[in-house]
Write a protein that binds this DNA or RNA. Structure first.
Lengths: 248, 248
DNA sequence: GAGTGGTCTAGACCACGAG
DNA sequence: TCGTGGTCTAGACCACTCA
């Protein structure tokens, strides 16, 4: 059971130790893969397997044609339905910067089902890309039908999860009274790999949200992609005893 | 953007098409990897990359020393906090069988924090392994402190998510009034790979749950591991307007 | 243009399962 | 024993980045 084999795991552990020891400081690149291969007496593909593990753990960032860079420890992101939890963790966003790009799109099949609008409906799309330093950290896309509101959004925001939009909607008196969140674990799509600089073997938390107002109209929908090793979703539910009694 | 490259993706698509077309029926093994390599004019490692993708998608099952077997389409599992959603989907469990094994354990550090009990506290652990046919489908571990209840649990159950235990607790008048759920996406640990027969590159949805009664006592905790390609978590929250008014 | 990572090849050896 | 998948090697070519 105590497998001593797997050359690439040994190499991964050795590199992890080196990084922890400060041999390769954060922000600097590792030696080239060919050099690492020579140093460990292994082949390049084997070294690449080891580097892939470090990348999936969020320890390094692979930059094609440039090098493998040691990352600073990442802030963790917590997605939650309970604002009291968020408030306790607000220092989370201190070192994150959030870029927002706004585009107008027409609903395709997927968006039309998520927003419950006809295909072709005009939507405003807000893409939130958060970074820690220069490294991409999380990706959020928020959709608001043009018929619901026309928001003017600054190019930088405060929430890596796109809460800027919900806050603006509330400011305008558009309050979500019902929210449904779907959460899945999957591997990143190629475009997400590039945008987030994660490996194809990194698990991501894929969150789809739909917010409705009192009339049942969808006022906002979001698609979040959070790298698994630095994010978590937390949901807390409180059920009064009488309600617990009622069901069954 | 329309990448035509990536030999192993082409091969993966070709194999997907063959499986969908019935060339390789469910339950049967694919040709050997060397034969596939010859047929596609590619090398074995490249074919293995393609097969790895199919495995991560839950289309095939790799059995070492034996072959690569085509799987039947899997039932999807939905974890939810909203029982009305579950009720609409109960046919889900029709083709699943659930094995339950009961053991008594002492709380280690991790369990003691999750259950908020001292290290060494006696706990009953119930392991739920669900299968579709002979293929493992999901894994759930439920913990109940011995001081809360001593349940007698049959060796087979109905819920792949361990809800049998919650139901029994409710029957005894032990009602959870508050539940906190943590959800993460990660790659499987080696033991999970073996138990669920998934590849090391398959993303899993890791769900930790803690249920408390009105006194704040933890009455039950659970750790669920659900293969990402066949599971999803859904949370719905309903917020009365006045409450929305109250916050902020 | 020099160096980097990204991909693929061809072949080797091992551990495991079935006959 | 034989065939299978699991791992690793050594080397090749390409695309990309940066000076």
């Amino acid at each position: 059971m105590a497998d001593v084999k797997h050359r690439h795991e040994e190499i991964a552990e050795a590199l992890r130790a080196d990084i922890a020891a400060g041999t390769y400081p954060a922000g600097k690149a590792l030696p080239a893969e060919t050099q690492l291969a020579h140093r460990f007496g292994a082949s390049v593909p084997t070294v690449r397997l080891a580097l892939g593990r470090l990348q999936n753990d969020g320890l390094i960032e692979k930059v094609p044609g440039n090098g493998n860079y040691v990352l600073r420890p990442f802030e963790r992101i917590t997605y939650t339905n309970d604002k009291s939890v968020t408030d306790g963790l607000t220092p989370t966003t201190t070192t994150l910067t959030v870029e927002i790009t706004t585009t107008e799109v027409e609903a395709d099949v997927q968006l039309s089902t998520q927003l419950r609008v006809p295909v072709g409906t005009r939507l405003n799309r807000y893409v939130f890309l958060s970074r820690q330093g220069t490294s991409p950290h999380s990706l959020a896309q928020v959709y608001v039908p043009c018929s619901v509101a026309e928001l003017t959004v600054p190019p930088t925001g405060w929430s890596p999860l796109g809460d800027d939009i919900r806050a603006q909607l509330v400011d305008r008196g558009i309050r979500p009274t019902s929210t449904v969140v779907h959460i899945a674990a999957r591997l990143p799509e190629p475009s997400e790999e590039r945008q987030l600089r994660i490996g194809s073997g990194t698990a991501v938390l894929a969150i789809r949200r739909r917010s409705m107002d009192a009339d049942g109209r969808v006022i906002e929908a979001a698609v979040l992609v959070l790298p698994g090793h630095r994010s978590e979703a937390v949901f807390s539910t409180h059920m009064p005893v009488d309600e617990a009694e009622a069901k069954k």
